[in-house]
């Protein structure tokens, strides 16, 4: 991910010196499998759904499907719960991931902590899906280790407080297990980019630590922080396996609704299903687009 910005800046590499017709033909043949693949397995399938979202069952153009996303109560509530969980897990994951990255990079802790944190984040950010749900069930489920320990040691049952792992906060807490590491992995290079000279310059000019952060560090870091938080949002918005394994179909989030629609047309309208998918693409597309834009902004300071 960190290479994106550089990649864009190096887009205008020096042109080939010996442009011969035969050689460029080889080049085009060489990249053609990639473009055929992209067309067949990324672009056309997406396009099919997008077009279908604007058609009725007879194939005529219509906006009814898209309008129904806002009017049908079950669909609207599914989007709403998904958005709430994604916002909660992105904001909490973003803040806490930033705090951990800050602690490891700038916090003055022992040297070995940083590589340990980075390696663990690499693993934990990949440890998602069904096994993650199992891990949290074994820990915070009704007979999980933490639940039983709290009852044994403090006679305190977290389930008596209304907590439920198979709920909004339960799922958010579980998602944080891959959200926080992802934040750490992406924000650490940005923290590394804070030059010591800036800090020293502000100190010489009499700025307090707080002023340094308020007027120097944060204005440089905010695009990276906000951008990565948006990436986390999209990341949890499109997730399904963890939620499905954790809650079955009891929690009505949009990915689970779409899963049921693909399996058995629960909306009783194929084209409404396409509109459901379109809505997801728009939401993840906007947040990822904003991430890429903000990323390009923050990379200006990294060179």
């Amino acid at each position: 991910m960190a290479q994106e910005g550089q990649a864009l800046s190096q887009a205008s590499a020096p042109p080939a010196r010996t442009v011969q017709l035969g050689q460029n033909a080889w080049a085009w043949i060489g990249v053609s499998p990639f473009f055929i693949f992209a067309l067949m397995f990324l672009i056309l399938p997406t396009l099919y759904l997008v077009i279908g979202a604007f058609q009725d069952a007879q194939g005529n153009f219509t906006l009814v499907n898209v309008a129904q996303l806002f009017t049908q109560a079950s669909i609207r509530s599914a989007y709403w719960i998904s958005i709430k969980i994604s916002v909660a897990s992105a904001v909490i994951g973003g803040l806490f991931g930033f705090a951990l990255a800050y602690a490891a990079v700038i916090g003055g802790l022992p040297q070995w902590l940083r590589p340990t944190l980075m390696t663990f984040s690499g693993v934990a950010s990949q440890f998602a899906g069904v096994p993650l749900a199992f891990a949290f069930l074994a820990t915070l489920g009704r007979t999980g280790l933490v639940t039983t320990l709290l009852v044994m040691l403090f006679d305190f049952n977290i389930y008596s407080t209304g907590f439920n792992l198979l709920s909004f906060w339960g799922l958010t807490l579980t998602y944080l297990y891959f959200q926080i590491p992802l934040m750490i992995l992406i924000i650490t290079p940005a923290l590394d980019g804070l030059r010591r000279e800036w800090r020293e310059a502000s100190e010489i000019l009499g700025a307090s630590y707080w002023q340094y952060w308020r007027y120097v560090a944060l204005p440089i870091l905010w695009p990276a922080i906000v951008g990565t938080t948006l990436l986390l949002f999209a990341n949890s918005f499109g997730a399904i396996a963890t939620a499905y394994a954790l809650t079955g179909s009891s929690l009505n989030i949009v990915t689970i609704l779409l899963y049921a629609q693909i399996r058995g047309d629960v909306l009783h309208d194929q084209n409404l299903g396409y509109a459901l998918a379109l809505g997801m693409i728009v939401i993840t597309g906007l947040s990822n687009g904003a991430y890429i834009w903000l990323r390009a902004r923050s990379d200006r300071w990294q060179r």
């Binding site: 056309l44 997406t46 779409l258 299903g273 998918a277 693409i281």
Partner: peptide, 12 residues
């Protein structure tokens, strides 16, 4: 990364 996996497979 932008298009959720479940949407891609729906298209397939």
């Amino acid at each position: 990364l932008v298009i959720p996996a479940i949407v891609i497979v729906f298209g397939y």
